[in-house]
C-alpha cells in the first residue's frame, strides 16, 4: 500500500488521448474567440472614426491580395486533409504553397499598399486618421499572418521530419484553424477598408 501511494504521488492518472484532443480543441477555440474580440475592437474603431467613408485605395491590389489569401486557405485545407490521409508529399506541397501565398499577401499589403496608398502615417490634417486606421488594421492583420506563416513553417519542418500522420495531426489542424481564422478576419477587413462607404480624401 505504501509503495502504491508513493507511485500515485509521482504519476498523475493520464488523460486519454481523445480527451486531451477535445481539451486542446476547446482551448484553441477559446483563444480564437478572444482574438476575435481584438479584431472586433479594431473593426468598431474603423466605423467610429471613418463612419460611412473610406480612403481612395487601389481596388485591383485589394482584390488581388484578398484572392491570394482565400486561395491560401484552400491549400491549408488540402494540407490538413493530406496528412489525415497520410499523404506526406501532398501535405508538404500544399503547406509550402500556403506559406508562399501568405508571404505574397503580406508583400501585397505591407510592400505595395503601404507604399502606394494615398493616405499613410505622414498624412497631415483631418485625413491623417485614415492613414492611421488603414495601417493599424492592415498592420495588426499582417502581424497575425506573419505569426501564421511562422507556425506553418514549423509545421512544414515537422511534417518533413515525419512527425505527423493520420493518427497524429492535431498540430496541423490547430495551424489550419488559426490560418482560416486569420483569413476570415480579412473577409471582414477587406470590405471595411476597400468597399464600404464613399471614398474621400487624397487620391493617388
Amino acid at each position: 500500500m505504501a509503495t502504491e501511494t508513493l507511485a500515485h504521488e509521482h504519476h498523475a492518472p493520464a488523460i486519454s488521448p481523445a480527451r486531451r484532443f477535445a481539451m486542446n480543441r476547446m482551448g484553441l477555440w477559446l483563444f480564437i474567440l478572444s482574438d476575435a474580440f481584438f479584431f472586433a475592437g479594431i473593426f468598431v474603431s474603423r466605423f467610429y472614426l471613418w463612419g460611412a467613408t473610406r480612403p481612395h485605395l487601389d481596388q485591383v491590389l485589394g482584390m488581388t491580395v484578398t484572392i491570394v489569401l482565400l486561395v491560401s486557405s484552400y491549400f491549408m485545407y488540402r494540407a490538413e486533409m493530406a496528412i489525415r490521409h497520410d499523404d506526406r508529399g501532398d501535405y508538404l506541397r500544399s503547406i509550402l504553397i500556403t506559406i508562399l501565398l501568405g508571404v505574397a499577401f503580406m508583400g501585397g499589403v505591407v510592400g505595395f499598399e503601404w507604399r502606394t496608398s494615398p493616405v499613410n502615417l505622414r498624412t497631415e490634417g483631418e485625413f491623417a486618421v485614415y492613414g492611421a486606421i488603414l495601417f493599424f488594421m492592415t498592420g495588426m492583420h499582417a502581424f497575425h499572418v506573419l505569426t501564421g506563416v511562422i507556425l506553418l513553417a514549423i509545421l512544414a519542418y515537422r511534417g518533413y521530419k515525419g512527425h505527423f500522420s493520420s493518427r497524429n495531426y492535431w498540430a496541423v489542424q490547430a495551424g489550419a484553424i488559426y490560418w482560416h481564422f486569420v483569413d476570415v478576419v480579412w473577409v471582414f477587413f477587406y470590405p471595411a477598408l476597400y468597399l464600404m462607404g464613399t471614398a474621400v480624401g487624397p487620391t493617388h
Partner: peptide
C-alpha cells in the same frame, strides 16, 4: 487594444484620439 493605440499614437503619431488629425 486601447493601450496599444495610445502607445502607437505617442510614438508613431497615429492620430486615433486627436481631433486635429481626424481622431
Amino acid at each position: 487594444l486601447s493601450f496599444l493605440m495610445v502607445v502607437l499614437e505617442r510614438n508613431l503619431g497615429m492620430g486615433f484620439f486627436n481631433t486635429a488629425l481626424g481622431g
